[in-house]
Simulated assay, not measured.
Amino acid sequence: MRIAVLIKQVPDSDEIKMDPDKGTMIREGSGNIVNPLDLNALQAALDVKKKCGADISVISMGPKQADIALREALALGADNAYLVSDRFFAGADSWATALALAVTIIKTGPYDIILAGEKATDGETGQVGPEIAAMLDIPCATYVSFMDIDDMFVTVKRTVEDGIETQRLYLPALITVLSDINDPAMPTLSGKKRARRSDISVISAADIDLSSEEVGLAGSPTRVVKIEHPKITRHTEFYCGKDIEHGIEHVMKVLKELAIL
Rank of each mutant, 00 (worst) to 15 (best):
I3A: 10
I3S: 09
I3E: 06
A4G: 12
A4W: 05
A4P: 09
V5I: 06
V5E: 08
V5N: 05
V5S: 07
V5T: 06
V5F: 07
L6D: 01
L6Y: 05
L6C: 15
I7S: 00
I7H: 00
I7Y: 00
K8Y: 14
K8M: 07
K8P: 09
K8S: 05
K8G: 13
Q9W: 13
Q9C: 14
Q9D: 10
Q9H: 10
V10C: 03
V10R: 01
V10E: 05
P11M: 06
P11E: 06
D12R: 03
D12H: 03
D12E: 02
S13Q: 04
S13R: 02
S13N: 04
S13D: 06
D14T: 11
E15S: 08
E15A: 13
I16V: 14
I16Y: 01
I16K: 06
I16A: 02
I16Q: 02
K17M: 04
K17C: 00
K17I: 02
M18P: 00
M18V: 11
D19G: 08
D19E: 04
D19M: 05
D19P: 10
D19N: 14
P20T: 03
D21F: 12
D21Y: 15
K22V: 01
K22I: 00
K22D: 03
K22W: 06
K22C: 04
G23H: 05
G23R: 08
G23C: 09
G23K: 04
T24M: 02
T24S: 10
T24V: 14
T24W: 01
T24F: 01
T24Y: 02
M25L: 15
M25C: 07
M25K: 11
I26Q: 12
I26D: 09
I26K: 12
E28H: 13
E28K: 15
E28S: 14
E28Y: 12
G29S: 10
G29A: 14
G29V: 08
G29E: 12
G29F: 14
S30T: 15
S30D: 02
S30P: 00
S30L: 12
S30I: 12
S30M: 12
G31H: 10
G31V: 00
G31M: 06
G31W: 03
G31C: 01
N32M: 15
N32Y: 12
